[in-house]
Design a protein around this nucleic acid. Structure first.
Lengths: 182, 182
DNA sequence: TTAAATCATGTAACTTATTACATGTTTTAA
DNA sequence: TTAAAACATGTAATAAGTTACATGATTTAA
């Protein structure tokens, strides 16, 4: 059960906001929800085809310029319904966070391991960068608190991600401080 | 590159601590590192075979009871070396946390959405349970702080996971409090 | 004006991960 | 003593995800 093709629901969720092309959806996985889920176009185009076969989306062809065909996908009523069901049913499976760094840490035996400082510093730089990026994104998308009302979920997950990264950064700093001076 | 078969390194990391059977390794993914990575026995047995073909592990057969054959796997010198390399090279890719609940949240438009309270309460219960479980695990494995010295990495990641869940629980509580009273 | 970047859509090959199928032994508790 | 639970090892089928292959149009900046 674990997987249950979540990609289809993400696509439906995005199309529920506005009609989009496969290309637009691909981009959304870079900017918007790339923070929380990833997918390549090679996964998206076939999935759109399947969703259309099942009647959850339809597409219209628009011409851009002279002859470039775009397929603009729309969600259908049954697609909307499926999306609503997915959101409404419980989410009882807390998926393990597959963090490669944490995995490596697990195999470190002692706090004197000479690899530890470099490893922690690298992650600190990475998570600091991510934190800054997320904070800028929040400031850009929600300059006034009142704007959070319109896209509440988006606001919440950004704010959640910021808190998560903030914790990660502080944990790394604290762990570095606790290291024995060699 | 993204994936690069991390399972093989986890297996090597576990075998680096002590010889284990495929069954033991499978169990380790339930208890120990199940928090951070998951794998089924159907993935583990073939992977052990490949690692042996490549010379990173060897196995000896032991008999349990009358005739039950166990394959006890040992890491080789080159296996140890490969593990060390994996830990030593950088870990620059911060993988997206594929949290289904967060994904669902993204598609919630307003803070008046009637599904929100139940969704948040469910997650609160789940993460509270996980937090308690992790705390008990820390208390069991590291009753005295001095014990953290022996398995420092394990101690660190448990402590990290507890902090992460603690943040998650508090974020959920805060988000629930901020919800408008209907 | 032309080359690079971006837009746009698809398929193929491969890797990784999950679920199901398949079999047999040993231990434990009723 | 016997049935259930746990131990133990594998393969097959399927699903999900990544990388590579493949092609062409439009826009933008040098």
């Amino acid at each position: 059960m674990a997987q249950k093709n979540k990609l289809q629901f993400i696509i439906l969720g995005l199309l529920n906001q506005q009609p989009l092309t496969g290309y637009d959806l691909t981009k959304a996985f870079d900017d918007e929800i790339g923070e929380f889920w990833q997918a390549q176009h090679s996964q998206i185009y076939p999935q759109l085809k399947r969703l259309e076969e099942q009647g959850y989306v339809t597409h219209e062809i628009t011409i851009s310029g002279e002859k470039l065909e775009k397929k603009l996908y729309h969600i259908t009523t049954s697609g909307s319904q499926l999306l609503h069901e997915w959101i409404s049913i419980g989410t009882p499976d807390l998926t393990a966070t597959k963090d490669e760094f944490i995995l490596k840490l697990y195999f470190i035996q002692t706090n004197h391991d000479p690899r530890l400082p470099a490893m922690l510093h690298e992650q600190l730089a990475l998570h600091n960068a991510k934190l800054t990026h997320l904070q800028q994104r929040l400031a850009t998308l929600f300059p006034q608190p009142a704007m959070a009302k319109q896209h509440y979920g988006h606001y919440l997950i950004l704010q959640h991600a910021i808190g998560r990264e903030d914790y990660y950064v502080n944990w790394l700093k604290q762990t570095l401080r606790a290291l024995p001076n060699k």
